[in-house]
Amino acid sequence: MKLATYRKKSPWILHYNAGGCNGCDIEILACLAPKYDIERFGMINTGNPKQSDILLVTGPVTKRSRERLVEIYAQMPEPKVVVACGACASTGGVFRGMYNCEGGVDQFIPVDVYVCGCGTRPEQIIDGVVQALAILEQKNKDMEASVRLNTQPIAEDEQLNRRHVAASITPTPTV
């Protein structure tokens, strides 16, 4: 259907800092500013998980942030895309192996786009979000297909069970 192509033109973003150094966060803020202006793509920084499509996560996930991160992810309605901004959100970066860090967002929630760099440049963030739009459209189609064929029960789709995730964390030995 032709209308479906318009759906990816309105991504609303939600930003969460899972323990990073603020560097990527201020670059996300700079993306909103006139020089980069991501509202060109229809993006609004909503700050409300229930109305957002794209979750921008920065920072290596610290032990205290991880529950909030998963909670926020679980509150977002499908279809949703997670963009890990920066080296430490993607892999843990320089913080990998520190005793209070988990090393990477993808240990807890499925990440669709990894944006590299420490700190990420606004151009990279915009590029990552635009890539996320294509994934968002694909997820949208997948969701429609599963509803139409009625093949996938709701319990088995991408929706995360928070308890399940929280239990799977392996305690890293303190150095």
């Binding site: 990073g20 920072g59 610290t62 205290r64 942030s65 913080f95 520190m98 209070n100």
Partner: peptide
Amino acid sequence: VYYVHRGIEKACCTK
């Protein structure tokens, strides 16, 4: 305020 504790001081003295 301690959501962001990563353990940098410890890492600086060991790693």
